[in-house]
Design a protein around this nucleic acid. Sequence first.
DNA 1: GCGAGTTCGAATCTCGCCGTCCCGACCACA
DNA 2: TGTGGTCGGGACGGCGAGATTCGAACTCGC
Lengths: 120, 120
Amino acid sequence: MQVVKSAAGIQKLYYSIGEIAEMVGEETHVLRFWETEFAQLRPRRDRAGRRIYTLEDLAVVQRIWHLVKVDKYTLEGAKQVLARAGEGHDRAALHKELRRLRAFLQNIERQLGVNSRSGT
Amino acid sequence: MQVVKSAAGIQKLYYSIGEIAEMVGEETHVLRFWETEFAQLRPRRDRAGRRIYTLEDLAVVQRIWHLVKVDKYTLEGAKQVLARAGEGHDRAALHKELRRLRAFLQNIERQLGVNSRSGT
DNA sequence: GCGAGTTCGAATCTCGCCGTCCCGACCACA
DNA sequence: TGTGGTCGGGACGGCGAGATTCGAACTCGC
């Protein structure tokens, strides 16, 4: 707890590997290992070469943690998911995709309404 | 290819473990192993005690195969997914969930439209 | 009814993913 | 100046997910 002191309610800017490790309930060496595996996890360093994690970095760690420990993907599988999530940063494409999805859901809903038999 | 002979275009009723294995590109021993792991995969047996797979069994095998080999879940993860997929057969609940989802998507879309700055 | 092929279950073996452990060195700060 | 966190690297380890092996049973074409 040394990088940026936080007065009441003020968010810290950076966190050490030990703090992050504790937050997600893993050991520091696991975080270091994940760092060798996930291109998305590349915290900056301070002048002494030590990792400094932003809240964004924390989010990435938590994402990985969830994929691996809760969903139970292999690391390879988690990489795939993250890589895929990294796409689609185009706003127009997102819009389009959302519209498509909504139409799709609406369609399902319609079919559920009309077809009252539970055909196999 | 011995259980039920298929004339042109007629679907067979049952498939042997060897046939199923070939269809999904795995060895028979893998299917036997998966059977010990997945409660959903319990093909019936013929009088001699040999497995006979229906198309439904095939679908389960393919589902597992996709989860493990494409999505790259661990077996444990694939089990979770399958178990979860087994729930939610209630039509009303589905309706509700669909409506919730549509509203959710609509909301995202609205925010995308309004907020033109790429925050964070 | 014979040989070739498939399947059976159980036991044993293998391999590599995913960490663990250990190390000496560095750095901060009290 | 000593205590504690962090650094990277290399050796080590458990175990998840198959692979292999076995003798025995069954089926099929002939």
